[in-house]
Amino acid sequence: MKTLVICSGGLDSVSLAHIVADQHQLTRLVSFDYGQRHRKELDFAVAAARRLNVPHHLIDMRPIGAALTGSALTDDIDVPDGHYAEDTMRLTVVPNRNAIMLTIGFGIAAANGDAAVATAVHGGDHFIYPDCRPAFTQAFETMQRAALDGYADVRLHTPFVERSKADIVRAGARHDTPFAETWSCYKGGALHCGRCGTCVERREAFHLAGIADPTRYADPDYWVTALAEREGN
């Protein structure tokens, strides 16, 4: 199946690109610059496209991102530290981000004769990000069928939507994903900070998967403290 992958350059989407390349016909990677402070993730998407020998489409969404105010990913708001928790990680929501990106992805897929758009939304994001939940992905695919009716038949491929990030690490490892060549940290510094929610989640995922984490963190042990605080210990 000819499949386009929405690829941020993060662990999840780069793993998905490698899996699709092995199991389907990977046609292209599509990434978005929406003014995120961790824009360096896009360099890892470019590298993934080169490694997998497919075209890379970088969509400039900065004017749109500038209008989607209120997120720590795009505004001058501190990215919260600690494990994902609703009261803090709501600051990292960019409203309708996935809906906008997927809409563009479906347009590109339809224009190029691709049969599917793959995105790496996963179960760990459900309680924070509404556009990562199964209800959203199912409704979105239904909407796109109506939008492209009579022009193209493009499916939405979400293999991780009911799975954990540890599951993604295991699957990515089976398909030789070079995890060191992915970027997760929302702060976008020289190294992964080790303290923000996505760094803690990344470190925990490798631990739960039983796979060595090649990531260099500025604070490599903070995740243990963050998990203990979450559990109230």
Rank of each mutant, 00 (worst) to 15 (best):
C7W: 02
G10M: 05
G10A: 06
L11M: 14
L11C: 03
V14A: 02
A17R: 01
D22E: 11
H24D: 14
T27K: 06
L29P: 01
V30K: 00
S31Q: 01
D33M: 03
H38W: 07
D43N: 12
A45Q: 00
V46T: 04
V46R: 10
A48W: 01
R50Q: 12
N53K: 13
V54N: 10
V54S: 06
V54A: 11
P55I: 04
H56S: 03
D60H: 14
M61K: 06
M61P: 07
P63E: 15
P63N: 15
G65P: 09
G65M: 07
A67Q: 15
L68H: 06
T69P: 11
T69M: 14
S71C: 14
D75F: 11
V79T: 12
D81F: 12
T88N: 15
R90C: 12
R90F: 10
R90I: 14
L91S: 12
T92K: 09
V93I: 15
R97D: 12
A99W: 08
T103A: 05
G105I: 02
G107C: 08
A109L: 06
D114E: 13
A115F: 08
A115H: 15
A116P: 04
H122P: 15
D125Y: 00
D125F: 00
H126L: 01
H126I: 01
I128C: 04
C132Y: 00
R133P: 02
F136A: 09
F136C: 02
F136L: 07
Q138T: 13
T142Q: 10
Q144D: 05
R145L: 04
R145M: 08
A147F: 09
A152F: 11
V154L: 05
R155S: 14
V161W: 05
V161C: 13
S164E: 10
S164Q: 11
G172T: 01
H175A: 07
D176S: 13
D176R: 07
T177Q: 03
F179M: 03
E181N: 14
E181D: 14
C185H: 08
C185P: 03
A190L: 03
L191E: 04
L191A: 00
H192Q: 09
E204V: 10
A205W: 04
H207T: 15
R216L: 14
R216H: 15
Y217C: 10
A218G: 12
D219L: 03
W223K: 06
L227I: 14
E229I: 08
E229F: 11
